[in-house]
Design a protein around this nucleic acid. Structure first.
Lengths: 330, 330
DNA sequence: CTGAAAGCGCTTACAG
DNA sequence: CTGAAAGCGCTTACAG
């Protein structure tokens, strides 16, 4: 590959001038600039990123740390990040941690060694407080989807509001006895969905049906299992609020397995609006998360921190959820 | 971050010796090695990857170029790649091209500038023949899922065999009139599935039902649309072979929309075995692709090429498909 | 086996 | 505005 000296020679200037013309921070005569640009163009010169990185410059790479790409919530967010990164000339390194703190630490060390410019984490949760120290070590960090305190720039959903609207809608449809099948309360996002559920119930003067409120459920198999147990115990809620679309899918299967219909006998509300949630039977009524947009915002914020520095107080950006009415709620 | 000189000082040796002790290619006295290792450990020294890269070493990063992470076939393959890469100390840069050749070229240039060690492409298709030149420019390349000739190391599915088995199974269930709703014949993988379909039909002495064979269909919306048209025209196949699970989902919706049942009235066979294909109603009978395994193999091969060089002829590795019987075929 | 030195390809303070 | 030089942190051929 052609280097800066060859370009300098071709343009009839010094390497310094080529560098200055290219970075654009230090003034260069118009004449020199034109000759350099012509040579760069002609020779298809691309500065060596290692040399630039070694000089303490940015390498224009960000690390994206998530639990698992196979979890259906992440692909859209990844696209948002990657598209935005690409527009700014950045590249994205993908890391899956499986919620495993060892893997997470490994990736952080490994990536810092490469002097990654910054990180986006979707792995924040209790036990991962050491992530909060990264900024003080000079590493720009943004949290996305999941949060952990307020000391880090964060982009999340209004989980409380989304759940609240979902329950309000179900109540408005005449549904009264609404079970909740929720994820782990370790994660604020599930805690907030629970709080939204409770608020809507309270406002309607309804009591929490405590024996039909289950936390710590994840994915369709778990969802199927817990719903089956509820049904086996004789519970017959009017509706179930599943705080993720996969759980909703398992729940629908369990309901049908005992010969009941969705939504005629039991309504099911999901949460996420995954790409295929419109395709299942019945098409899922659910709360949409703007995953792509979250990715875009998280990435923009990170790049801004990388390029302009963190000059203001960290901000927790909360995006609105949106109810998507389809056919799984009566 | 601590650099090699500080480690050298602490260990009472020269930087050269530290480097040699660490890389391990050039002999170092046992005594020196121990002192170096102790200092490295104590100071938590990590060599600067830029400096190493600048010296012409490997940067231990591979570029993964796919059409779109949101396409449900990729996440599992990505995990296979990333897990394997991680085991070897490699990091994965993810690039989405949306089948757009400009984006693809942009990424290739951008990544080569960073001296990526090699590429895995899932974007091979007619029009992308320039990818075939990469190896001659010294860039290790592996194709995964999609192939383009035989000049590149490739990991793909036995698409012909998978389709053949699917049709054989349907025939064995007494299904005769089997429609085909297929993807674009531009891609060898769909061409091969078509060939498998034809072979099974021929062997059974059945003719190709030409007016119920449609190519160029992609995704559930397309699948829904084309099935609806077929049905509207009065076609009533015994079964439909959809060459992807998303197409199968759209097809099932279309069948139900006109009041027919799956599989009692029309059976539907998918292809892919996506994570959620067991969860839909009816649970999808389909042909499983070992996506994770394909990722593992592709990544292993690439790392081998990076570290050992391409010393043998390129190989096209063909993995077996497996029929997964569930409930959408009678 | 070991150290001093050169050099990878940039950027930037220094001197003009 | 411009060039020569230093230096980022490594690795490795060179000399011993």
């Amino acid at each position: 590959m052609v280097n800066i000296k060859e370009v300098a020679k071709a343009a009839g200037v010094s390497a310094s001038t080529v560098s200055r013309a290219l970075t654009g921070k230090i003034p260069v005569s118009e004449d020199a600039r034109i000759r350099v640009m012509a040579a760069v163009e002609k020779m298809n010169y691309q500065p060596n990123a290692f040399a630039q990185g070694l000089k303490g410059g940015r390498i224009q790479t960000i690390g994206l740390v998530i639990p698992n790409v196979r979890s259906l919530v992440f692909p859209a967010a990844i696209r948002g990040i990657e598209d935005t990164a690409g527009q700014h000339g950045y590249t994205v390194v993908l890391c899956n941690t499986d919620e495993n703190i060892e893997k997470e630490r490994f990736y952080i060390e490994n990536l810092r060694r490469r002097l990654i410019d910054g990180f986006i984490f979707s792995t924040a949760r209790p036990g991962h407080e050491y992530l909060l120290d990264l900024p003080s070590e000079g590493v720009p960090v943004v949290f996305m989807i999941r949060q952990l305190g307020k000391a880090i720039n964060t982009v999340v959903l209004d989980n409380e509001g989304g759940a609240y609207e979902a329950i309000r809608y179900m109540l408005s449809r005449g549904l009264k006895n609404i079970a909740l099948i929720n994820g782990s309360l370790d994660l604020p996002l599930y805690r907030h969905r629970y709080e939204g559920y409770l608020r809507a119930l309270q406002e309607a003067g309804a009591a929490e049906p405590a024996d039909m409120v289950v936390h710590g459920i994840s994915g369709w198999d778990d969802g199927y299992q817990v719903m089956k147990e509820l049904l086996d115990k004789g519970h017959r809620p009017d509706a179930v609020f599943a705080t993720s679309d996969p759980k909703a899918m398992g729940i629908i299967r369990a309901i049908r397995d005992i010969g009941l219909r969705v939504p005629q006998d039991i309504s099911v509300m999901g949460f996420d609006n995954l790409d295929f949630s419109s395709q299942i039977d019945p098409p899922l009524t659910t709360v949409a998360q703007p995953f792509y947009e979250m990715g875009v915002r998280a990435c923009r914020r990170l790049i801004q921190m990388i390029e302009k520095g963190q000059n203001s107080r960290p901000k927790v950006e909360i995006l609105s959820a949106q109810l998507v009415v389809r056919k799984s709620v009566i």
